[in-house]
Every structure is written in structure tokens, then in C-alpha cells.
Amino acid sequence: MGGALIPAQRTLVLTALAMVAFAANSVLCRLALREGAIDAASFTAVRLVSGAVALGLILLLRDRSVKAMATQGNQGSALALFVYAAGFSLAYVELATGTGALLLFGAVQATMIGIGLYRGERLAPLQWLGLMLALAGLVALMLPGATAPPLAAAALMLVAGAAWGVYSLRGKGAADATAVTAGNFLRALIWLLPLALFAWPAQWPQGAGLVYAVLSGALASGAGYAIWYLALRGLVSSTAATVQLSVPVLAALAGVLWLDEAFTLRLLLASAAILGGIALVIRRGASR
């Protein structure tokens, strides 16, 4: 055996790395935008380009031709990916790290659950309770007040989360999720042109902002998604969904520790309601 990890340990390590990577996206974006080292449109562009490059390199390391990127994915998923990435960056101009991650995660799960209901899925009474609790948490977080997030920024993050939920459902069951993701990153680059026109004149990225955006695209996004797909091989669906509840918590803690952001009572109560409610939906669905 030597020093090799057993499958369960390997899955645990991969899952932990993926959750840290997902939370790091929020931290890196907020850090770059807060310091004014890059604008939101440029951050989105650099993130998508560096993510595509990183995923292409991963395919090469797997003895796959980069040409596979041109045949994988589709324009619909690429558009959803772009809307997520652009909305994410634009929202974090004003949102705190933890608040943005919580809004994003809540919107992702609400979108996926809502589409499931539209397609005919049914919820047990306890699941309905969980869904109502999560929605109440989102509403409470958005209510006017001294600690409420800016409405426009919050709406942008909800749109980003909805787009990511759609993207996730469109890619469900992909035979090679990493190759499909690489193809979608490549296809999403075409949407950078209208974004550049919308944001013109864009700020020329400074050194730190460029570094944060590359780290977000290449490591937290490209490598992070590849690691997550490896971890999914050892996780059942309910566990995979539940473990993602850790991402907003990790992002909020990182914001407090590294960005000197306040962890308010409103955010604490909303987090408990949203994450607890979603956990009820997921776990009850698994038990059924």
C-alpha cells in the first residue's frame, strides 16, 4: 500500500479540496474588486480564459486531445456559464463575501428544486417545510435594514445562482464532465465581446487583480471543478448535495478572517434558515 490513500480517504481529501476551491472563488473575486485592482468585467474575462486554459491542460494530462474541447459542451450551457460568471463578478462589487456566497448557493438550490417540481417531482411535507424555511431565510436576508445587502447586487447574485443551477442540470449525467466543462468554458468566451462593449471603457487590470482573477479561473474554477468531478465518483447524490452546504460558511469565515468583514446576526440567522432548510429537502429526499 505504501503511502497511498484508500478510496474513502481519497474521496474525503478531494471533497475538502473542492469545497475550499469553491469558497475561494468568492474570496478571490471580492478581494480583487474591493481593492480596485480590476473591474468586474475584466475579472470575468480573465477567469473564463484562464479556466479554459487550465481545463485544456488537464485534458492534455489525461492523454486527451485539446481538440476534444471543440466537440464537447453546447451553446446553451455556455451561455448559462457566462451569465453565472458575469453576474457573480458584478454582484461582488458591493456584496460581502459570505452574503454573496449564501445568496448564490440558495439560488442554485432553489432553481434546481423548482425545476424538479416543474418536471413532476414531488416533495414530502418535511421537504416542503425545508423549502419554505430556506425561502424565508432568503427573504429575511434581503429585507431593508442597516445590514441588508444592496438590492441590485443581491439580485445579480440571485441571477448568477439561477444560471448555475440551470448549468448544473443541463450537465447532469455527462459521460465526461471535465471535458464537457472545458468545452463550455471555451464556448463561453464568445460572450466576452458583448460584455466588453457593455463595460467599456474597462479598467486595465493591475498586477494583484490579474493574479486574483487567474487564480480564480485556473485553480478555484478549472482545477476545482475537475477535482469535484473526481470526488463525485465516491459520493452518493445526497452526500454530494449536502456537503456543498459548507461553501457559504467557509466563504463567510474567510471574509471575516482575511477581509475584515462583519458576520452579522442577520447573516447568521439567514444562513441557519437557508442551509438548514435546504438540508431538510436534500436529506429527506435521500431517505425516501
Rank of each mutant, 00 (worst) to 15 (best):
S168P: 08
L195S: 00
L143Q: 13
G165M: 10
L156S: 05
V166I: 15
G173C: 10
A188Q: 02
M142E: 00
L141P: 01
P150K: 09
L143P: 02
W164N: 12
V180C: 10
G165Q: 05
V159R: 01
A155N: 11
L141N: 00
G165C: 10
A155H: 01
P194F: 12
A182V: 11
W164G: 05
A188R: 01
P149A: 14
L151N: 02
L195V: 03
R170K: 15
N184K: 07
T181S: 15
R187K: 15
A152M: 09
A196M: 13
I190K: 09
A175Y: 03
A140N: 09
G145C: 08
K172F: 14
P144G: 11
A188D: 04
A162R: 01
V180T: 15
L195K: 00
A148C: 07
S168L: 05
G173F: 09
L143M: 14
L158M: 14
A160R: 00
L186F: 03
A146L: 05
L186V: 03
A174T: 12
A155F: 13
G161A: 03
L192R: 07
L169Y: 06
A188K: 01
G183C: 12
A154N: 04
G171K: 09
G145T: 04
N184Q: 15
A163L: 02
A163K: 01
A175W: 00
F185A: 12
A146T: 04
T181V: 10
G145F: 11
W191N: 05
L141T: 00
Y167C: 04
W191V: 06
W191Q: 06
G145D: 08
A140W: 15
A175R: 14
A140M: 15
P144M: 12
G165S: 07
A174Y: 05
L169W: 09
P149K: 13
V180Q: 14
L158P: 01
G173T: 12
A163T: 01
L143G: 00
P194G: 08
L192W: 02
D176A: 11
P194R: 11
A155G: 13
D176M: 06
P194Q: 11
T147P: 06
A153T: 01
T181I: 10
K172G: 15
A162P: 04
G171V: 13
R170W: 14
